[in-house]
């Protein structure tokens, strides 16, 4: 696929093809009118020129950290108190989550289609399938690793927990003592919440620091599903 893109001769009049990705239309006419052959320069490495379906989607950790740092301080300036700060970060993540599920589905479908003969991914309709999708696929796509633990709460049937021992968003952030119980991963929690919502699993997601000696940043993402979701699951699958 990438071979097509990097070929020097642009294909004319194709525009955007979702299977191939964006096509760069260059000034072919100029060279066509000229009798002398013009050497085509391979397109520069713009993000827009690259295939949407490439396997690697890497972002520099430093640029992410600086951007996220500004995001947090921007929200902090506008929030009165920790609760509101958490809510703001959550809200910022939420809008990403809504859209990200769509993109992730598309990408995953593409990868499974090309690597196996299966007919792509199915949409997850069971809670546990959806959570496993978040725990492995989503976590890998965003953070390059799977989450460390996925468990169901003993006390409440609606509650599930995903644990990350060293969350990327918190890696460089030490929360001062006056901001007790605040966790910057509220942003990631918002992304998860948005994804679950757009997949019709209405839920509240929050991030909590549960530190251990080895992992001072260990974060538990608490997912509280609506009772209606649990009920629906029971009716459908009788579990």
């Amino acid at each position: 696929m990438s071979r097509i893109l990097s070929s020097a001769k642009p294909i004319q009049g194709i525009g955007y093809d979702p299977l191939i990705g964006p096509q760069r239309v260059e000034e072919v006419e100029a060279s066509a009118n000229n009798s002398t052959s013009v050497d085509h320069v391979t397109p520069p490495n713009f993000n827009y020129d690259r295939n949407l379906h490439r396997m690697k989607h890497d972002v520099s950790l430093s640029s992410f950290s600086f951007l996220f740092c500004e995001l947090v301080s921007w929200s902090r300036e506008r929030a009165n108190g920790i609760q509101e700060l958490e809510k703001r970060l959550n809200g910022l993540g939420y809008t990403i989550g809504l859209k990200y599920l769509e993109l992730l589905g598309l990408r995953e479908n593409y990868i499974t289609n090309t690597t196996t003969s299966k007919n792509g991914l199915n949409r997850d309709i069971k809670i546990i399938q959806m959570l496993e999708f978040i725990h492995t696929t989503f976590w890998k796509a965003l953070f390059g690793k799977t989450a460390d633990n996925l468990e169901r709460s003993q006390d409440n049937v609606c509650n599930y927990m995903i644990t990350d021992n060293d969350p990327l968003a918190n890696r460089y952030i030490s929360v001062p003592s006056e901001f007790q119980n605040f966790n910057c991963s509220a942003f990631v929690a918002g992304i998860i919440e948005g994804m679950l919502d757009s997949a019709y699993f209405q839920a509240d997601v929050s991030a909590h620091t549960v530190e251990t000696k080895e992992n001072p940043n260990r974060t538990v993402f608490l997912i509280q599903f609506d009772e209606a979701v649990i009920k629906r699951e029971q009716i459908r699958f009788g579990s």
């Binding site: 740092c69 030490s174 910057c184």
Partner: peptide, 23 residues
């Protein structure tokens, strides 16, 4: 530059009180 500059709770030129940095 990692643990102080990328910390949103740090104000520039102020005393550093970052647990991760100290560690």
């Amino acid at each position: 530059s990692d643990y102080v500059m990328k910390n949103p709770f740090y104000t520039l030129d102020m005393p550093i009180k970052c647990q991760l940095f100290s560690n």
